[in-house]
Simulated assay, not measured.
Amino acid sequence: MKIKPINKKLKLYGFNNLTKTLSFNFYDICYALTPEQRQEYIEYIDEEYNADRLVHILNTVAKIIGANVLNIANQDYEPQGASVTMLVAENQVICDDSIKIYDNESPGPASEAIVGHLDKSHITVHTYPESHPDRGISTFRADIDVSTCGEISPLKTLNYLITSFEPDIAIIDYRVRGFTRDVNGKKYFLDHKINSIQNFMTGKTRQMYQMIDVNVYQENIFHTKMILKEFDLDHYLFGVAKKDLQSLEKKKIKQRIKKEMLEIYYGRNIAKFKG
């Protein structure tokens, strides 16, 4: 059953200047047997997520949050990596100095636009492809920040970004800063209900990933980590198939990949791992 939002409208003194920031770290993990294959993986990732592709992704994010793009700065780097910074402003402002307080948590759209009120907000993405010199492991990390001011929340971009990058691991932070004030002088430090970032994901996404929340509700700080539940070795191999490997080799490669993933997920090195 769809939960209807509480249509509670508050008269504000001035503009809704709450700042809401959604930050992602997306990781893709790969195993390549030879130095040549590792280099091919880096080149593949560098091309797949070059500056032009990232600009396209961020343009769609801007549409989802109802923002006009004011300026785009993008750069591909040598030997690898790319960055895009986008400055956005409010779309069509139909503002009567009031806000609606919503009492529901739901996933955002995949790509359709939502009109919101934003002012001098920004969206950024930076990519970091890298590989281990002798263990066969290569990783791709994308850091994304979506920061908005006003009524719309960047949480509505969550579904689109997850499906665009299809990460093996994601580390997600959401923070609301500042306050807005009603005409009677009462401050509002949050203008929408949130118990967990997970509630803004689809059921399909929640089924695919193991998740951990670390939330500080009194500070309006929310943190979610997610890692794929299912492990299929072919998903992580580059330039070779599982069927072409010997049993012992498959076991060692699987251990290396799982160790790498768990170290990233938990944010610490694991001295000994048997998996």
Rank of each mutant, 00 (worst) to 15 (best):
I101Q: 05
E263L: 03
N71A: 01
V69L: 07
I114H: 04
L118K: 11
Y41T: 11
M86V: 13
E260Q: 15
R175L: 15
K250I: 03
C149I: 15
S147M: 12
I123K: 04
S83C: 06
E263R: 08
F15Y: 11
Y217G: 01
V183N: 06
G108Y: 01
M211C: 03
I72R: 12
I169E: 04
Q92H: 09
D143E: 15
F15C: 02
K225N: 13
H223I: 08
G116K: 03
E112V: 14
A73S: 07
D97L: 12
N195P: 07
N215A: 09
V93N: 11
D46P: 08
V183L: 09
N269G: 03
F273W: 14
L118M: 11
F140R: 00
G239F: 02
K20I: 01
P5V: 04
A170Y: 02
K186L: 10
A110V: 14
Y31S: 07
Q80H: 09
Y174Q: 05
F140A: 04
T60K: 12
K258D: 05
S138L: 00
Q92C: 11
G185S: 12
V61Q: 14
L118T: 13
P109T: 02
T21H: 00
K20M: 04
Y13R: 06
I137K: 00
F15N: 06
T180D: 10
F179I: 04
L33N: 12
L54F: 09
G275V: 14
T139F: 01
N91R: 10
L161D: 08
A67E: 05
D234H: 09
D213K: 04
H117M: 13
T157C: 05
K254Y: 01
I162Q: 09
D143K: 15
N215H: 07
G14S: 13
R181T: 15
L118G: 12
Q218Y: 07
E112P: 09
L33A: 03
E249G: 00
K193P: 02
D191T: 02
R177T: 14
K20L: 03
M211R: 04
R206E: 08
I29C: 13
I137W: 00
G150V: 06
I137D: 01
V88F: 05
Y236K: 15
I29G: 09
H56R: 10
Y31D: 09
R177I: 10
Q39C: 01
L161M: 03
N68M: 09
F238M: 00
Y174A: 06
D232A: 11
M208Y: 11
G81A: 00
K274P: 01
K4S: 14
T180I: 11
I162V: 12
S98L: 08
G178M: 02
Y13A: 10
